[in-house]
């Protein structure tokens, strides 16, 4: 299963992925509109900051933070874990395995091809962000340059974690619960619900080292212009080190999942 063959097929994967995103547009919109947690959190913090800034965040600062968080979440979506567990349950997964290209290629393309659809919802968020909180955003072009690989890295982390947990569905009857647990931790430790710098220092130390941060908080920090150029570059390296690590884990998990599947059947 050569990478070259997969890359040759990739443009078609993207086209088909886009076609199916268009076919499921209603579901897509609803999904995206239900991504409202940053706004719910913004409500309480904005109320708390009525009487003055909290931990360095003014009302406007909170608005900027949560709008950026929403944007990152909207643009880095992946859902392969649901697809994997469903296909394994229905037994359609076998048919995918008979194709001469690793199924993860096609899934990754499907998830990426939905980005234009996501953009439709994300665009108004960008407009509101620019209008409401432009003063809070980074003024350094270098940070915005870093944002592209940072977003790609964030998406890859999310995608690979889902691939790993989805692969476990080959062994366990429902690995989707495991993914829910990951989501729970990630909500807290990625800065999705609370900016990491508002946590007590013990939690912050932990959160900064774990991979969750690189899924969301790091790109948001870039957009808000936190830290220095060197720090941000170091963080980018750390993010991609995590990506590489999860990539290796994905391969191992896939191989072992396949062995189990071939022994016990689906």
């Amino acid at each position: 299963m050569s990478v070259r063959a997969a890359l040759r097929a990739y443009p078609q994967f993207l086209k088909t992925g886009f076609a199916s995103a268009v076919a499921y547009r209603a579901e897509f919109l609803i999904w995206m509109f239900s991504t409202n947690m940053p706004l719910v959190m913004l409500a309480i913090w904005a109320a708390a900051a009525r009487s003055g800034p909290v931990g360095g965040y003014s009302q406007r600062g909170f608005a900027a933070y949560y709008l950026c968080a929403l944007l990152v979440r909207l643009m880095t979506g992946a859902w392969i874990v649901w697809e994997l567990t469903m296909e394994i349950r229905q037994g359609v997964f076998s048919l995918r395995l008979l194709r001469p290209i690793h199924p993860l290629w096609q899934w990754s393309a499907e998830n990426l091809a939905a980005i234009p659809m996501r953009g439709i919802v994300a665009f108004p968020v960008v407009i509101i962000l620019l209008w409401l909180a432009r003063g809070e955003l980074s003024h350094d072009w270098f940070f915005w340059l870093l944002l592209a690989p940072a977003l790609l890295g964030a998406w890859l982390l999310y995608f690979l974690v889902q691939a790993i947990i989805g692969t476990l569905a080959l062994r366990f009857e429902s690995a989707s619960s495991l993914f829910e647990a990951w989501l729970g931790f990630s909500n807290i430790l990625s800065g999705y619900l609370v900016p990491l710098d508002l946590f007590p220092s013990a939690v912050r130390v932990l959160a900064v080292a774990l991979p969750f941060r690189f899924q969301l908080s790091y790109p948001v920090e870039l957009m808000l212009g936190r830290g220095t150029r060197v720090e941000m570059l170091e963080l980018l390296a750390a993010q991609w080190a995590y990506v590489a690590f999860f990539f290796v884990v994905t391969r191992v998990a896939w191989r072992s999942g396949m062995r189990h599947y071939a022994a016990y059947g689906g």
Partner: peptide
């Protein structure tokens, strides 16, 4: 797992509140 998850999500709901009122 689901039983444990229910507990986890409760914690997820509580933590932001604790942080807000810590400030």
């Amino acid at each position: 797992v689901e039983g444990a998850l229910a507990v986890l999500w409760m914690a997820v709901a509580l933590i932001p509140l604790m942080v807000v009122f810590g400030n």
